[in-house]
Simulated assay, not measured.
Amino acid sequence: MPKVLLTGGSGFIATHILELLLKNGHEVVTTVRTEEKAKIIRDAHPGAKLSVVIVPDIAQPNAFDEVVQTPGLEYVQHTASPFHFKFKDPKTEILDPAIKGTTSILEAIKKYAPGVKRVVITSSFAAILSADKLGDASKTWSEADWNPNTYEDGITGPPGTTYRVSKTLAEKAAWDFKEKEKPNFDIATINPPFVFGPVVHHLSSLADINTSNGNMVALIVGRWKAEIPPTGVHLWVDVRDVAKAHVAAMERPEAGGNRFFVTTGLFANKEIVPIVRKHFPQIADKLPEDGVQGGDYPGGSVDNVYKYDNSKATKVLGIDWIPFEQSIVDTIGSVLKVGAK
C-alpha cells in the first residue's frame, strides 16, 4: 500500500484519519509539534507501520523540507492548522501557521518529493461561508462559494473572522500554487463545518478538547442549565465521516482537483439535549430542564435556515453519513470517559 505523510497527527480530525489509514494498510509518517505528543501516538499504535516526526513550528520557512524527503511518499494529508480563539496575535498565532504552513509543505513536496501524486488539505466551511448571508434562508451553500474576507479583516477583525480568513487564504494559496507552479501532484480539499464525534486522541483534561466538541463539554458540566447557547453555524458532520472523506479523496482518482463540502446536515443546539437525556440519565442533573430557552433555529423552524448541497461529497467520496443521534451519543460517551479520568 502507498506511503502517506499526515501532518498534525495529534489533532482531533487527524487522529481519526491516522486510524483509518493504518486500518486500510497504509504506511504512515506523521508530524507533531512535541516529543510528548509523538510518544502518545507511538504508544497508541504499537506495532503499526508508523513513524512520528517532530516539526515544532509549521510557519517557519522550510519546516517540512526534511520530512517530505522520506523515501517512497506517494500521498500527503495536510491537516496541521490552528483552530482556537485564545490567541493574542492573529498574525503569528493563526494566520501565518495556516497560510505559510500550507505553502511551505507544497513547496517542499514539489522540490523534494517528486513521487507524491496528491495532497489532501483540511480546509473548512469557514472558507466557504459569507457571514452576511448566514441569515438568508434562500441561500444554498456549496463548494462554489468562497468566503470574501481579506487578510486585513483577519488582522483587525474579531477572532471568528481571523479563523475564517486563515482557512480561506490557506486554501486559496494551495489552489494558486497548483495553478502557478504546476507541480506533479494534484490537490483536493475537505471543507467541514462543526465537527462532532468521539475523541480518540489523548486529552489531559476536558479543557483541551477541540473547539466543536467544546459545546458538548459545556452541556455535560451544567453550563447549559439556565439557557441553551446559540448554535452559531447550523451545519455539522461527524469526525469519522471527515476522516473517510480525507482518505477517499486520496484513494479515489476522480477526487483530484476538487473541493468537497463535507456536511451531514442542519442541527440546533436545542436538539442535542433530549438525545443526551435519553442516553445518559446519570448526568440528568446537569442538563437544562424542559422549557429552558435558547439554542433553537431562527423563528423556531429549520425552514428559516440556509440550505446546503453535499451531493458532490456524497457521490464522489461515497460517504454514507452518520446520523445525528449516533454522533451525539458517541461524542458524549467519549467525552464522559475523559472527564472520568
Rank of each mutant, 00 (worst) to 15 (best):
R252D: 13
R252N: 15
R252P: 10
R252G: 11
R252F: 14
R252L: 15
E254R: 04
E254M: 02
A255V: 02
G256F: 09
G257N: 09
F260K: 06
F261M: 04
F261A: 04
V262A: 04
V262D: 06
V262P: 01
T263R: 07
T263F: 14
T263P: 02
T263Q: 12
T264C: 11
T264A: 14
T264Q: 08
T264H: 11
T264F: 02
G265T: 00
L266P: 15
L266Y: 10
L266D: 11
F267V: 01
F267W: 14
A268N: 02
A268P: 01
A268K: 09
N269H: 12
N269M: 02
K270T: 10
K270W: 14
E271V: 04
E271T: 10
E271F: 07
E271R: 05
I272F: 05
V273K: 04
P274G: 10
P274W: 07
P274M: 07
P274H: 09
P274L: 12
I275F: 08
I275D: 03
I275Y: 11
R277N: 11
R277D: 11
K278V: 00
H279D: 07
H279V: 01
P281D: 04
P281V: 02
Q282A: 15
I283C: 12
A284M: 11
A284T: 13
A284F: 13
D285E: 15
D285W: 13
K286W: 05
K286C: 03
L287F: 03
L287R: 06
P288W: 12
P288A: 13
P288K: 11
P288E: 13
E289D: 14
E289P: 14
E289I: 14
G291M: 12
G291T: 12
V292N: 08
V292S: 09
Q293W: 11
G294P: 05
G294A: 05
G295D: 09
G295K: 03
G295A: 10
D296Q: 13
Y297N: 00
Y297E: 00
Y297L: 01
P298M: 07
G300C: 07
G300S: 01
V302H: 13
V302K: 15
D303T: 02
D303W: 11
D303N: 13
V305M: 01
V305C: 04
V305D: 01
V305A: 00
Y306R: 10
Y306S: 05
K307S: 07
Y308C: 05
D309V: 06
D309I: 10
D309L: 00
D309R: 03
N310R: 14
N310T: 15
N310L: 07
S311K: 12
S311D: 08
S311N: 06
S311G: 03
K312F: 06
K312A: 01
K312I: 08
A313W: 01
A313M: 00
A313Y: 06
A313E: 02
A313F: 01
T314W: 13
K315L: 09
K315C: 06
V316Q: 00
V316N: 01
V316D: 13
V316K: 02
L317V: 00
L317T: 00
L317G: 03
L317W: 07
G318M: 08
G318N: 07
I319P: 09
I319H: 08
D320E: 09
D320P: 08
D320N: 14
W321L: 08
I322Y: 06
